[in-house]
Structures are given as structure tokens and as C-alpha cells.
Write a protein that binds this DNA or RNA. Structure first.
Lengths: 337, 337
DNA sequence: ATGACGCTTGCACACAAGTGCATTTGCATC
DNA sequence: GATGCAAATGCACTTGTGTGCAAGCGTCAT
């Protein structure tokens, strides 16, 4: 007992001995299309079931692809991230992949160590949902035959696939929503985490507003969360002339913003203030909020991801843009024509 | 090109050839405490870095433990689940484990197939956060030397560790909170998903109330989510005498309940209605809610989990109960002595 | 009866690591 | 310079698979 310690995982050899056949027979029994007689197949399956045998995919992964896909993610508790992880894991599993998750920080060193682990486990592909790996790390992954997919990371990196929601369209449409609602004093609320996605939404919103001859006050009070949105509203409405039309680059920011506007300043929506978010998290549909926003088409992105990984010959890399879907609720006045 | 297809993962042999040493030397370089001269170590590291070599943990896992821990979970998008997954992945990673996630349904067949996959990948341990595996499946896992840990699944299954929040205390304290607030007409809101945890909270709450001579209306309108809480409130306040003290077995239910009470029936909290939740999700602290609730001590549970898995000799199995932490906010009147 | 053909089956090798054991090397001491 | 000792190194075996190759066996047609 003290000698064998703990290696009780039953292997194909044990099954073979019990079934009175060769180990090859066991292997073939569990391989589709291999040549085994009905008789030995039966014996093998019986012995396997008695012993509780399960094929060792680690060993199998030594020869062929491992079927492991690594998800690198930070801020998993954020509703939008949780949903993305949920959708992707479901779709990947359905496609026969196994998901290894690496919960990391967004700083470069954390991502780097995550990438290295991905290689240690011979993952077929790495999907990065947060943070941005260095170009060198990606090169190493590619050199090892691994696919790299970035989701909603707009940084231009060669050699990897890039799935992203159309942030440009988001920023533009958000502006038009507010203008159609007749808003005069615009503000944009973002976070101090300068993600490329968020920056893009901000850039386009401000740009389009400027083209239309309108100024935009930009506010960033902290990380991308409820509290920062709340604080942004306090600062904006603490001034003499607060905005009457606001685009929060994230729903979470928007909900915090809305709560502060209502509870601290007694504003009502969409009367005194029109508010647009981005992401379409569940909470935005709650009765206390009913936030008008844009949904990220995660299902479509997941399908595309599966398609990419399914190809034996790696597809051409590049960007693939997905249109956000406008979700009309009650935080913006209907068009005041 | 068509012949070698894609197996470009660089192995120790390639590194050895490049460095002009034996493969053993490479292996030893990456093994702590192995005997290698400074000279060859340098050569190996240099070659490894040039080729982008990473030790294959799959192959390593053939001989010793794989260091893989499987997380079986459903409803990942639920805030409380997302946080649990987040905490556990962080703690396990910090302890050198690698996390494989299986996003499954709660039905027995889904869980069974998840458990099988766990075995396929020789995970050292399986941690079940949702659903309940059959006793037979658990037996197979144990027979294969795998540890099984159930979290917040109160079902009595032998051979596996059981970490759980103290639901009994939750139900009891919830009642006392409401009684101290002077509530007369009690109700309990739960879901139609009869999880052992939820049933336990319900059972104790009703029992303690009965001992104190108070009746409890029990309401379950659907799955454990916001919408069910909302619907429960509509039904309860649609009657002649709605409750003035409610325990929702989940924060998500509580938030939906609160929104309906306020927006559909114009009730104010804690004046007309006292409300207690359970879980302490972030949303409960938002300005629109400020829900009084009980926090699940996930950090402590994670620490204990790591401790369990760290032991070379599997610890004695059994239940370990963690006390929930009362979170005072504004949905319950302060004690009316 | 014999050869052809097809289905099974086992051997042996490959995959990528770690490690016990024996051998070689290097260095210091007598 | 020979001897002793420790450090370094390489061989070969181990882990659990999948599979090419060749041998074995049975059936059928000539």
C-alpha cells in the first residue's frame, strides 16, 4: 500500500489481461473504424466496464492533436465575460473540444505565463478573451503549430485570428440614437482601463459627434465596473450643466451611472437624461433599469470560432467583424421627429 | 509539407540535438534537483529558448499525477456561480493546478458524461459545483484514485468531500432578522429547481417560523433567476393580504422580487416590506437594491479545497460546513425592540 | 487441392517525458 | 602519477496510447 502509493488509474493493459486479449485489441475497440471481431469487442467492453476503464486522452494526445482549447480570461465575474465564457465553453464542448481555463490578470506578464501554460499542455488553440499577449509570445505559439484566436482584442497582431464586435458601428449608432432623441449636451463615460475596444467606441462616438458639430465631455473614473459609472455621474452632475445624453461604453458603467443619476440627483429617464450602454447584460433588462443598449453577438462569434478550429488546414488569419444588435428599451426617448 | 501535416510541437529531443547533449540532459535541466552541470544547463536553456520549447505536461502526466482539476458547473452566467468559479480557479491556479472546465446541464446524464471526461483526462480531482453525480459514477472516480469534491451539494454521498455553506443557519437567521424587524406575515420565495441547498434553507425557515407560531406562505414560480422572483411577487401581492416579510433563498430571486414589489405594487422597503436574500451577489449592493443578505464564504471554501487537494494522502472524507456571513444593508428594518 | 482474398490479431514502434543504474569525467589528495 | 571520490552523463526502461506490418485463419472459387 505504501509502495504503490496512488496510481490506480486502470490502463488498457489491465483490461486486456482481464479480457484475455492483446492490448491492441483494447485500443482498437475504442477506436472508430478499427478492425475488431464482434466477439473480442464484447469481451473487451465487458472487462472495461467491470474495471471502470476510460481511455487516457493525455496519452492519446501524445500522438495526435490534444483536442484541448485554452481560454485565457480575466475579470470572469463581470456579467459580460461570464456570458462569453459560458457561450464559448458550450459551443466548443459540443464540437468535441475540452476546455482548459486560465484565469489571469490583464497585465502582460500574467498573459505571458498563461500562454506558456497553454503550450505546456499542447492545446490545439488558445483563445484570448482578456489582456493582450506580446507579439513574441504569439510567434512562439504559432511556431508550435498552435492556433491563436483573439476575441474583442482589437490590437493588430499578425498570425492570429481576430473576432471582434463592430465597435465603430456601436459608437456611431449610439450617437445617432442620442441625437434622434434630441439630446443637446453629450457625455461619454468610459473606464481608465484603456482597452482597444473601449477606446474605439469612444473615438468613433466623439468623432461622429464632432462632425455633427457637437461637443462631448469624456469621463473616466476608474475600472470598468458599476462603481466607476456611479462615480462618473456624481462628477458630471456635480457641475453646473450636466449632460442630457450619455453613452456608457459598457452596460455595467451605464447601470452605475443610472443609479447615481436617479438616486443622487433625482433625474428621471428618459425625460431628463437619455442613456445608452453596450454589451446587453441581463441586468440591463431588469425592471429598475430597462437600459437601451447593443448586444454582442456571442453565439455567432462562438460558431465562427468552432468553424475556425474545426478546419484541419488552418484558415487564413485576419479580422472578422460582427455587428452588434441594437436593443431598444426605455432609457432613451423615442425619436423626437 | 503534406506529409508531416502538423506536428510541429518541439520536443526535448529536438532541443537535445540542437544543444549537442543527450535528451536526458534536457529533461534534467527542467527538473528541480536533478544533477546537471552549469555548462550543459546553459546550452540547453539557450537551445530551448531559440526553439520555443515547452515541457509537455501531458507526457509528464503519464508517469505522475496530472495536476489537472476538473470543474463541473452549470448556469455559469449566474452571478454567484461566476464568482465561485472565479475564486476557485484563482486559488487552484495559485496552488499549481490546471483547471479544466466542463459546462454542463444539471441533469444526471450531463453530469455523468462530464465525470467520464474527467476520467479521460486523468484529472487528479473533480469538483462538482452543479448537479449531482450518481453514486455509481463517483465510485468509478474513486476506484480510479480520483478525489471527488462536491461544493454546496448537500446530498449525502459517501467517499467524497463535501464543502457546503451552512444553509440551516441561513434559514434560521433569516427568520430572526424578519421577526426582529416586526414582520407579521411571512413568505418564502424559492425556485422549482429543488436543489438540496435551497430545500434546506426553505425547510429550516419554515420550521423555525412554525416553532415561533408563525405561518409561512411558500412560493416557487420557476427556475432560480430574476424573472421567477419577479413573478413570485406578482402572485403574492396579487392576493388580498401580501406578506410584509420575505426570505428569498437566492439574491437573484430577491432582486426580481424587490423590483416587482416596488414597480408593480408601489411598495417601499423596508417600510412596507422587509426582504432577505442569500448569496451576496454584487448586484445586491447596487444603489437600486441595497439588499440585506448572507454572503457565502467562497474564499475560505477555496482555501479548504486547495488544502484537501494538496495532501498526498487523501484526507478523510466528509462534510465541512462554512458559516454564511450576514450582510446588513437596507432591505430590512433595524430591530424594532 | 491449392491459391487468392479478406478479416483478425499480435508484435513492435512511435509519441514525450522522468529516472535508476552504470559509466565516464573531473578534480583533489596522497 | 595513481588512487579515491563526487559530479555529470548516457543508456534503457517506464508511463498509455494508436497504428503499420506481417502473420494467422477461414472461406470461396478455380
Amino acid at each position: 500500500m505504501s509502495e504503490q502509493e496512488r496510481r490506480p488509474f486502470v490502463s488498457a493493459r489491465t483490461v486486456a489481461e482481464r479480457a484475455g486479449v492483446s492490448r491492441s485489441a483494447v485500443s482498437r475497440t475504442f477506436t472508430d473504424g478499427a478492425s475488431v471481431s464482434e466477439e473480442t469487442r464484447r469481451k473487451v467492453l465487458e472487462a472495461a466496464s467491470e474495471l471502470g476503464y476510460h481511455v487516457n486522452h493525455l496519452a492519446r494526445g501524445l500522438r495526435e492533436r490534444s483536442n484541448i482549447v485554452c481560454l485565457v480570461v480575466a475579470d470572469m465575474t463581470t456579467p459580460i465575460r461570464a456570458r462569453l465564457v459560458d457561450v464559448l465553453t458550450r459551443k466548443l464542448q459540443a464540437a468535441g473540444k475540452v476546455i482548459m481555463i486560465i484565469n489571469t490578470g490583464t497585465d502582460e506578464e500574467s498573459v505571458a505565463s498563461a500562454l506558456r501554460q497553454t503550450l505546456n499542455y499542447r492545446a490545439d488553440a488558445t483563445v484570448v478573451l482578456s489582456g493582450t499577449p506580446s507579439a513574441k509570445l504569439i510567434e512562439t505559439s504559432l511556431a508550435n503549430g498552435q492556433q491563436v484566436v483573439l476575441i474583442n482584442r482589437d490590437d493588430p497582431l499578425t498570425g492570429c485570428h481576430n473576432l471582434s464586435v463592430d465597435n465603430e458601428m456601436g459608437g456611431r449608432e449610439a450617437f445617432f440614437l442620442l441625437r434622434r432623441a434630441g439630446c443637446k449636451r453629450l457625455a461619454l463615460v468610459t473606464s481608465t482601463a484603456s482597452t482597444a475596444s473601449l477606446l474605439e467606441r469612444e473615438r468613433v462616438f466623439v468623432e461622429v459627434a464632432k462632425e455633427a458639430g457637437m461637443d462631448v465631455t469624456v469621463m473616466a473614473a476608474g475600472p470598468t465596473n458599476y462603481a466607476s459609472g456611479y462615480e462618473s455621474a456624481r462628477r458630471l452632475f456635480g457641475r453646473s450643466d450636466g449632460p442630457d445624453g450619455v453613452f456608457c461604453v459598457t452596460d455595467l458603467l451605464a447601470l452605475g451611472f443610472m443609479d447615481a443619476a436617479r438616486h443622487e440627483f433625482g433625474l428621471s429617464l428618459p425625460g431628463d437624461l437619455c442613456l445608452v450602454g453596450f454589451d446587453d447584460i441581463d441586468e440591463g433588462d431588469w425592471q429598475s433599469y430597462k437600459l437601451t443598449t447593443f448586444a454582442q453577438p456571442f453565439a455567432a462569434m462562438g460558431d465562427h470560432l468552432v468553424e475556425l478550429l474545426g478546419q484541419t488546414v488552418p484558415a487564413e488569419t485576419g479580422r472578422r467583424i460582427f455587428e452588434p444588435i441594437p436593443i431598444w428599451r426605455k432609457s432613451v426617448r423615442p425619436s423626437a421627429e
